[in-house]
């Protein structure tokens, strides 16, 4: 297969309304076929908005989108009507954070999977149901035959998320968007779901964008990591590069805050301060007010993009300095 799976160029998203929000600011991102990318960032950094833009799900009247998005060569932002519906769930599909809320409470899970299959594949009701059954098996739901006729409220949280995944993969999308799919689940269930996603990714070979604010999760699931802050991508590289030599002070802060092997009771080295309000387009480094390494120049203009290696980038004035062991 040739051609990039995802090619986002200079994407900006602005929400209008009582308050203007510059949710995404000049984001560029590309993915090869079958790649897994973790989108890492604090709450409000624009991760969900990025995914929604990829699916054309933003409210058209209240949002303003600049830049371009191509998925498998298709210009996503120009899709309308039937073509858009075919693209959503067919080419690209999404797993949501709260499976309890993302499933319709008054239809059986089998119906909800079959409904999507019928739309995209144009098969009969029975055939769609058997696809649904097969998918429930593939996401390892025990006695799938019975579960097919359950309503969402009759399933546990982990089971519901498995259903969501079955639903998302039923039409064999080339790209799966997973928006913090494990955040709402118990720790043990989280791991099961992560392992399942990893297995299914290998089996189906689709690309995955995995949104999370947990570096540990990102490491588990993805080959590459993009770190987001205030609607921008601060740093990108392979998971190994980010973990070993995250160069942006923000990445370093996240790494310090997320160390899993800290001793019990020890205070995590969380980054002090709060993300900026996004009322205006950033004209300097958005992280500077919280940055331990900030220089006066940081607020004077947007930081330069340093590209130390192919597909590796850091947006920080001081990224070129040698990494000091801490």
């Amino acid at each position: 297969m040739t051609g990039k799976l995802v090619d986002i160029r200079n994407l900006s998203v602005r929400f209008k309304g009582k308050r203007t929000v510059h949710a995404i600011n000049d984001v560029s991102l590309s993915m090869e076929q079958g790649e897994t990318l973790a989108l890492l960032g604090e709450s409000g950094s624009g991760k969900s908005v990025t995914l929604k833009t990829l699916l054309g799900l933003l409210p058209p009247k209240r949002s303003e989108i600049d830049g371009s998005i191509h998925v498998n060569g298709v210009d996503v932002l120009s899709l309308r009507g039937k073509a858009l519906a075919k693209y959503r769930g067919g080419e690209v599909s999404m797993v949501f954070q709260e499976p309890a809320l993302a499933l319709d409470p008054v239809f059986t899970v089998g119906h909800q999977i079959a409904e999507s299959v019928r739309r995209h594949k144009g098969v009969s009701r029975d055939e769609a149901m058997s696809v649904a059954l097969d998918m429930l098996d593939r996401v390892r739901i025990p006695s799938a035959n019975r579960r097919l006729h359950n309503y969402p409220h009759e399933l546990s949280g982990g089971m519901r998320q498995r259903v969501m995944i079955a639903l998302a993969l039923a039409c064999r999308p080339r790209l799966l968007l997973a928006d913090e799919p494990t955040t709402a689940l118990d720790a043990t269930v989280q791991i099961q779901i992560l392992l399942l996603l990893r297995e299914l990714q290998k089996e189906f070979g689709m690309g995955v964008i995995f949104v999370t604010h947990d570096i540990g999760v990102a490491v588990e699931i993805s080959e590459r990591v993009a770190v987001m802050y205030a609607g921008q991508i601060f740093e990108e590289g392979t998971t190994r590069e980010i973990i070993r030599e995250g160069r942006h002070p923000y990445t370093q802060g996240l790494l310090a805050a997320n160390l899993h092997d800290v001793e019990q009771g020890q205070r995590l080295n969380a980054i002090p301060g709060a993300p900026p309000a996004l009322e205006s387009k950033p004209d300097g480094c958005s992280f500077a007010p919280r940055c331990p390494k900030a220089l006066p120049e940081c607020t004077a203009g947007l930081p330069p993009m340093l590209m130390p290696a192919p597909r590796r980038r850091v947006a920080c004035i001081r990224a070129g300095e040698p990494v000091v062991a801490e």
Binding site: M94, L101, D104, S116, H120, L167
Partner: peptide, 16 residues
């Protein structure tokens, strides 16, 4: 409710 967006996300039309 969230499931409405999820319906659009799986390619359902307005009538669905």
């Amino acid at each position: 409710q969230d499931f409405v967006q999820a319906l659009y996300a799986k390619g359902m039309t307005r009538m669905d």
